[in-house]
Amino acid sequence: MSEIVGGIFTSHVPGIGAAIAKGLQQDPYWKPFFDGFVPVHQFLEREKPDVAVVFYNDHGLNFFLDKMPTFAIGAAADYRHEDEGWGIGGFKPFVGHPALSWHIIEQVVGDEFDPVTCQSMLVDHGVCVPFELCWPDAKAWPVKLVPICINTVQHPLPSPKRALALGRSVGKALESWPGDEKIVVLGTGGLSHQLDGERAGHINVDYDKFCLRNIVADPEALTQHDTLDIVELAGSQGVEILNWLAARGALTGSVRELAHNYHVPISNTAAATLLVENHATVHA
């Protein structure tokens, strides 16, 4: 039987990838963010997951506005990054897990979601930066990838309630997967930030702390706001918390926070990392 070992939630600011490329992890500006990954590295070393199911949003690499899926599930044998327009790259390629992807697709469509299915899919910094953060010394990624892309770009966006429900459906699929893989779930993006408009630079520490306080024990608390409420609270791009909510939903067992790190600012963003363990049974 498969095992869902836990969840890793992290910001995915492209500048983090540039900082890694320049070796700035110990630089005073970056250190408070990168230090938050020490418990994550220990966890991954201990658990050694085989597969990562990643909830993220595409920023205009694979999807353009001509065809914009609300939910898209990768079902490719391999994935790669390409130039996103700034020339940053050098991200390692990914091995997919098509059989698990299709198992997830069967489950979520059975639960009346309507995802786009992608047998060919580029993955952008929303996937690559978290992988670099999680496995900084890997020559090749030690996990297979199932990417699940959520529209956080073009309104109307899916509701927080819907994102959480999608995650729960994915979690059901992972639980019923007959393989013996260990699976880790990632949710990327956020926390509060806004890149556009006169309010660019908006950060909301109180809302971010509300999310960090509640997402593990009571994710429904985050569904009291609709997407525009979240845009107002967390900023236009802070709405990437939808990816975190979906990832949280996929952790269907008994969950416990192992660590979190919250640091403002990284670029225009309130950067956060959260590590959650998941067990099928409640520890007595």
Binding site: G36, I203, H260, V264
Partner: peptide
Amino acid sequence: LQTGLPIEEFKAALLAHGVTERSVA
């Protein structure tokens, strides 16, 4: 450019939050 602030002031406003919070179980 969108807020009308000089770049150094825009960066300073972000740095002014100055929050780092860490917790390990």
